[in-house]
Amino acid sequence: MSVQQGTAHRPWVDRLLTINGWLIFGFLYLPIFILVIYSFSDSKIVGIWGGFTWKWYGRMFGNPEMMGALSNSIKVAIISTVIATILGTTAALALDRYRKWLGKGAFDVIMYMPVIIPEVTMGAMLLIWFTQVLPINLSIWTIILGHIAFSASFVAIIVRARLANLDDSLEEAARDLYANRWTTFRRVTLPLIMPGVMGGALLALTLSLDDVIITEFVQGPGASLLPVYVFGLIKRQVTPEINAVSTLMLGISMVLVFVSLGFQARSRSSEGNKEE
C-alpha cells in the first residue's frame, strides 16, 4: 500500500483547515492586490479611487532619478550575482567533494555565518570596515561587495544540498575513462549541479534586488539603488507613483519566481532520471 498523504480527518476538522487556509491566502494576497489596483487610480491620494489611468507609470518612466536607481539596481544585482555564484559554487565543491583540507572546519563555520547574522549588523560592520579601515570611498562597488558577502553563502548552501544528493559514481566513471579533472568537472559535475547553481543564482539575484539595509549603510553619495530610493520616497510622501514602481518591482519578483520554479521542475525531473 502506498503511503497516503495525511490520515483521514473528521470532516469538520478538514473544513476548518480549509477555511483557515484560504483566509491566510487572503491575508497574504489582498494587500498586494490593493496596492496594484491603486497604481492605476487617477487620484493623488492612495486609497481614493479616481478612475483608471496609466499616468503614474508614465511619471515613473519619466523620472530620471528613479530610472537611474533602477539601472544601478540591475547593474549591482547582475555583477554581485555572477561573482557570488562563482564563489558560492566553488565553496560548495570544496566542502562537499574534498574530504580534508587545511582550515576546512573553520571555513564551514565562516561560510554559514552571513546567513544567520542580522542584516543591520552586517551593514554596520561593512560601513566601519570600508570607511575606517580600508582606504575606499563608498560607491556602487562597495554595495556590490556587500551584496556578494551575504549572498555567496546562500548560493553555497543550495549548491551543497544539490551535491549531497548526487552520488559521485558518474564522476568516477568519467575519470576512469581518462577524462582529466577539468573535463570531468565541465562535462559531468557542472551539468549535474546546474539546477542548484541556477537556483542559488536566482536567490542571490532576489536578495540583491530586495536589499535595503546593507545598501543604505554602504552606498556612496548619488549612487542609490531602487529599493533604497523608493524607501526614501515613501518616508517623504506616499503617492500613486510609488504604487506604480512597486508594481514594477513585484513584476520582476514574479518573473524570478517562475524562472526558479522552472529550474526546480527540471532539477526534479533530472533527479528522477537518476533513480530509474
Binding site: 494587500p31 498586494i32 490593493i34 496596492l35 532576489t206 534586488l209 530586495d210 535595503v212 529599493p227 523608493v230 524607501f231 515613501i234 510609488i242 512597486s246 518591482m249 513585484l250 520582476i252 519578483s253 514574479m254 524570478l256 519566481v257 526558479s260
Partner: peptide
C-alpha cells in the same frame, strides 16, 4: 519571493 519593501509598503 516578492520584494519585502513593496509588501511592507502595501500595509
Amino acid at each position: 519571493w516578492s520584494n519585502f519593501l513593496v509588501r511592507t509598503y502595501a500595509w
